[in-house]
Design a protein around this nucleic acid. Structure first.
Lengths: 221, 221
DNA sequence: TTCCTTATTGACCGCTGGGTTAGGGAGATG
DNA sequence: CATCTCCCTAACCCAGCGGTCAATAAGGAA
């Protein structure tokens, strides 16, 4: 970026390449087995690189770990940002909730990793905690605002203040998240869950049968 | 238990004492820092016992870990079993939900430990996974049954089949559990949460104001 | 007392972990 | 060409790990 970078291209990209390779390997290993069960030698082997090179790129193991954290956090910010659009509030809420669930489904492994990290309560990585909580609060605020506007237009139940409804809804979403994370075969039914949530939020009538046979495939943990 | 136990008392209790001391120390350390970040020497120091003695009581580190798991699981079985009583169904549901939340509040540290363990997906400790999931399914079945009976008596909404309602409720409860685990100052409002759940389940009217000022203290994550 | 079993320990071992170091090869610069 | 800098490696270092063992203390039983 600065003046020093008018250097040769091939060498720089070579360095970048190996760095990326290391990060990629480390991300996979750390995410799937945790930092303490993953040795630097394993990372080196997975990245097909000498152990010493890792220590040339990253001062310590913790350094590498932090870099991995940032790398894994990347998809989070972009995905949540842009829920704007020309939809009405009701559809926006639906969309927001749906994108939450979709995101959870598609990023299960890194989410599992982050939650495990947060649960572990290592005060060392408080950076991560704050970052994740900030994202979470952003989502919550967005949702609260949206629900509040929907209520004003009379499009959904005003039984509870928007803030409370949002918190409640988020709790449920988080519960479903846990469901996603624990079900091994990954067969949680998105449609069913969305249907239930819409019914609850907007008091819509159930899609097909009025009460009889259970929808069978719901499995929200 | 068998005939061999007509042995001397003092020596046996001495052995038991040291064993318990080790288990106590190991439980605390494993639960707070995880198994891989806890060395046997640390356990020994915390239990004020030589490292070799630990290996006399428990063949390997994993042995000790499994013993710790069982020890930590003990409070779970008893607490869930006895929700019988002469209450009507509505009150029973309320009680069941309340005891879930209370239990979560009081056992946050071991729950955190278990979830971290489950998330980690170590196939080694599948025993634990199954045990926890069995407990969980038991609770779910109890709740489903209870809701089903309540619906039959027309005491609560029949909008959804009991099974689905139970799964949904459980998701919400789990979301609240996550809230408990992440909120540092432990200041989650039980009353508020219970109120919201009762209103949702039984369509009760909100306790005070109809829509205006938010109840402020709810904070369900 | 003597003997036998049960508890307990300090010292030790092999090995793996994170981290270092000395040096080699490749490309840009002069 | 020589030189300098940047990547990269094999080999090494050693603290701390899980685990073992020989020796011992502390009681019963005889």
């Amino acid at each position: 970026m600065a003046a020093t970078d008018t250097r040769a291209v091939s060498s720089e990209s070579r360095s970048q390449d190996s760095r990326d390779e290391i990060l990629k390997a480390a991300s996979a290993l750390f995410a799937s087995r945790g930092i303490h069960e993953t040795s630097m030698s394993e990372v080196a082997r997975a990245a097909r690189v000498s152990k010493a090179l890792i220590f040339w790129h990253f001062k310590t193991k913790e350094d590498l770990f932090l870099a991995v954290l940032n790398r894994l956090l990347e998809p989070y910010v972009i995905d949540f940002a842009e829920e704007a659009g020309v939809l009405d509030e009701k559809a926006q809420i639906t969309k927001l909730v749906e994108s939450y669930l979709l995101f959870v489904r598609d990023n299960a492994s890194s989410i599992r990793f982050f939650i495990a990290q947060l649960l572990h309560g290592d005060r060392t990585y408080e950076v991560l905690t704050n970052q994740v909580l900030a994202l979470y609060d952003g989502y919550r605020a967005l949702l609260t605002d949206l629900i509040s506007r929907t209520q004003e237009k009379g499009l959904c139940s005003r039984e509870f203040p928007a803030q409370v409804t949002a918190a409640f809804l988020l709790s449920t979403l988080n519960g479903m998240l846990l469901g996603f994370l624990f079900v091994r075969d990954g067969g949680v039914d998105l449609e069913g869950a969305m249907g239930m949530l819409r019914q609850w939020l907007f008091r819509e009538a159930p899609p097909s049968e009025p009460s009889g046979v259970p929808t069978q495939s719901v499995r929200t943990l």
